[in-house]
């Protein structure tokens, strides 16, 4: 899929662990893992909103379109 999830990059920038993010966002670890590994097929606006709020970033910092 040409949509790349850069969640791990943002997490590294904010020095936040997956457990911490999971607690703050209110998502299960398995769902966050699906998102982080790029297996997710869709993301809810509410989830994106919560992640952006916790990581203090924009949706474009997390999602990226890459050709090929």
């Amino acid at each position: 899929m040409p949509i790349v999830v850069n969640l791990d990059v943002m997490m590294a920038k904010r020095k936040m662990s997956l457990n911490e993010l999971s607690e703050k966002v209110g998502l299960t670890l398995s769902n966050l893992s699906i998102l982080k590994t790029g297996k997710a097929k869709a993301i809810r606006f509410s989830t994106l909103e919560a992640i952006c709020k916790v990581l203090d970033c924009q949706p474009a910092d997390i999602l990226e379109y890459r050709e090929g």
């Binding site: 997710a40 097929k41 869709a42």
Partner: peptide, 8 residues
């Protein structure tokens, strides 16, 4: 169903 399961 698979799409629903993989919606975060």
């Amino acid at each position: 169903q698979s799409e629903n399961e993989l919606t975060v």
